[in-house]
Amino acid sequence: MNELPASAPSAAPTDIEHPRHIRSYVRRTGRLTVGQAKALDTLGPQLLIPFQDHLLDLDMLASTSNTIDSIAPRADSTPPTGQKALKIPTKTVFEIGFGMGEATAHIAKVLPDTLFLACEVHEPGVGALLKRIQEQSISNIRIISYDAVQVLDKMIPKASLDGIHIFFPDPWHKTRHNKRRLIQPPFVAKLVQHLKPGGYLHCATDWQPYAEQMLEVLSAERAIKNTASSPDGYAEKPHYRPLTKFENRGIKLGHGVWDLVFQKA
């Protein structure tokens, strides 16, 4: 894979926490399109999970994820000719920062046996994913529009997740802003606590210095093991993760993309 020019050092700080006053994201302003606003109004009440100060029942969420009549027919009804009944998800993946939801919608269709809990604070992005869900009749996504760190702390049970996806988080290029990067040792330790044994953490970035820091931080966490077979420690892009328009543009310009997949023992 093509390398980017050398930039800021990749040394990963070991003492950085994510207190409430230091966030790894910025709330972007943006107007909702008519379609996004309509999707928020029609599907938001059914698919948006409000932030709460108690743990979610993930088994209950999975068992009811295919019963939204406005998205797709119920699994216990007779499907039209040639159409399969919807599956009840048996796995749960937590996604942090889905942007406009293009990859999330694609992966949810590729992995219908998985319930996706998708976290995003950008309202147009939430509206865009709801619109995709409606247009593509996707039933196995639920959205939490809140800070993912607090969602993990308050809403996600320990050892309950089959996977965690973090795709293209803000790299915070400037050295003085590196403390805002999401992938830091304390946060990775928190993520691992929420994975089941055998669960995986999949990160992806198109910024080489951040890829190097991610690899360093993840490799230092003893509870997870790198699944990559390549000597450089980076994984082949898993089949479920699509190439986005932005990513395709970058590849054509010679930019690299790095996937990291680690598994809990």
Score class of each variant (00 low, 15 high):
163 G>K: 02
180 R>A: 12
177 H>F: 01
195 L>S: 00
225 K>G: 05
233 G>Q: 03
181 R>K: 05
165 H>W: 11
225 K>Y: 13
240 Y>M: 11
174 K>C: 07
158 K>T: 15
189 A>T: 15
201 L>P: 09
191 L>I: 15
204 A>N: 05
240 Y>Q: 14
224 I>G: 05
178 N>L: 07
196 K>M: 10
240 Y>C: 11
228 A>H: 11
187 F>H: 09
204 A>P: 03
206 D>C: 01
158 K>C: 14
236 E>V: 13
242 P>N: 12
169 P>I: 02
187 F>S: 05
207 W>T: 02
206 D>K: 00
227 T>A: 09
177 H>Y: 01
184 Q>G: 02
228 A>Q: 07
206 D>P: 00
180 R>L: 11
156 I>W: 04
206 D>M: 00
193 Q>E: 15
237 K>Q: 15
224 I>Q: 05
200 Y>R: 15
182 L>K: 08
215 L>S: 01
232 D>W: 06
180 R>I: 11
227 T>D: 10
225 K>F: 14
175 T>M: 09
211 A>P: 04
201 L>R: 06
226 N>D: 06
168 F>L: 12
242 P>G: 09
159 A>L: 07
196 K>S: 11
167 F>C: 03
240 Y>H: 14
218 L>Q: 03
229 S>H: 13
219 S>I: 08
214 M>I: 04
169 P>K: 04
189 A>E: 12
158 K>Y: 14
228 A>E: 08
172 W>G: 00
161 L>Q: 00
214 M>G: 00
222 R>P: 15
193 Q>K: 13
160 S>N: 09
197 P>W: 06
239 H>D: 15
210 Y>K: 08
162 D>I: 13
180 R>Y: 12
185 P>I: 02
206 D>I: 08
233 G>E: 01
241 R>L: 09
196 K>L: 13
199 G>F: 07
181 R>N: 01
